[in-house]
Design a binder for these strands. Structure first.
Lengths: 225, 225
DNA sequence: GTCTATAAATCGATAGAC
DNA sequence: GTCTATCGATTTATAGAC
């Protein structure tokens, strides 16, 4: 291996280590991440970190992209093990919830309150759509195999607004695929967020997974699954 | 008016003014509220603020309680104008959403990511339940007048966990009232949060209200309304 | 690429004069 | 109840030696 390759590898490992410590810091400081505190934990000077991330926001962006990718992959892997659409939705939703429970502060970073003063760059939009795309593709698959229940028609101007998106993703399907995908995504993520953020306080303590599934099934039913 | 009363009134006005400025500050700094910055904006010394709020967290608590009360009252007033259960739910949900759109940072304060290092004191739990109680009471009313649709039975241990709460609030009704109330609350608040936090980015821009109503109706239908 | 040193701020909270 | 002054800490970011 050439010296250049070695340097590249060491740099990649150092970058990964910084992110790992930064993720740990998210837990105590929330999105109010401090580059200096990360450097202190790593036993290096704060200025050294700037060789890896040009600014605090750039480090934050890296963490956000990693989080989207991690939950996206978790959901995709889980869904791949199921065969029918409803099974895929349930698997993906449970995987997302479990990832959130294991990484609550990263969940808050991507689905919680926006970080004040932070504007997400373009690089974050594509990984951000992974979970929703998975839901959408699964629902579309169900439509194509006629496995979607009949429901009252959608009324409202919003469905016309969704028409272009529907046409670009699923030109053969009605735009309600998009509406129901977004609605289900909101419902599932809402259920996760409110459980995680403590709104389920003393009501359900043991069988939170069961209550979550109850809500996911409701979301699926509303989408016709 | 006695001098004591005058002092009390002046103090109350000053307290209110501090909170007003603090609410403005939530917009730029998020939950990372700075007592000093508030004092600076008011043209007073930071130490003077401590005569009104013993700590930063106490000021935060006051803002949280105010926010819960404000959105609770908005929802209650709106619901009071409707007659049937579904109408009350729709009115309450729209009122909650409109309050959130008008006060996004206060919404984030009560329904967004938890503030790191902040533990909510007991005083916050009662105002926090107002909106959910409104939904629950309305649904209970519908049950009592036999206006709830038949649905497949609930299965899962979580429903047993909700039994005590159901017994204390609605001893004459099945515990699913509670499950469906919480689920609907999560769904409605999730729809508001994700719209507010930018997850609806370029999909629905004009008729967000219509898309929100679509989701609220789904939540109501799932609850049998 | 890592270090020390530093600039120019911020913060919560307290002490003590008035 | 408000002020000044202060303690003791924090932060982002940069400059320059090695």
């Amino acid at each position: 291996m050439s010296a250049a390759n070695l340097r590249a590898r060491v740099r990649a490992e150092m970058t990964e280590e910084i992110k790992t410590v930064a993720r740990r810091h998210l837990a105590t400081e929330g999105a109010n991440l401090s580059l200096r505190a990360v450097a202190r934990d790593l036993g290096m000077a704060s200025s050294a970190v700037y060789r890896y991330f040009a600014s605090r926001d750039e480090l934050l962006t890296a963490l956000i992209i990693d989080a989207y990718d991690a939950i996206g992959e978790a959901a995709e892997r889980a869904a791949a093990e199921a065969t029918e659409p409803l099974g895929k939705w349930l698997a993906a939703a449970h995987a997302a919830r479990e990832w959130a429970l294991a990484n609550p502060h990263e969940w808050a970073l991507i689905y919680g309150s926006p970080v004040p003063g932070y504007a997400a760059p373009r690089d974050t939009v594509e990984p951000a759509t992974r979970v929703m795309l998975l839901l959408g593709h699964t629902l579309a698959e169900a439509y194509r195999s006629n496995a979607v229940a009949e429901r009252p028609p959608v009324t409202g101007r919003f469905i016309e607004e969704l028409q272009p998106i529907a046409a670009s993703f699923y030109p053969d399907l009605p735009p309600r695929v998009i509406a129901d995908t977004i609605a289900a995504f909101f419902q599932i993520c809402g259920a996760i967020s409110f459980e995680l953020f403590g709104q389920l306080n003393k009501s359900v303590e043991e069988d939170r997974r069961g209550f979550f599934e109850y809500q996911v099934r409701a979301a699926a039913a509303a989408a016709g699954l």
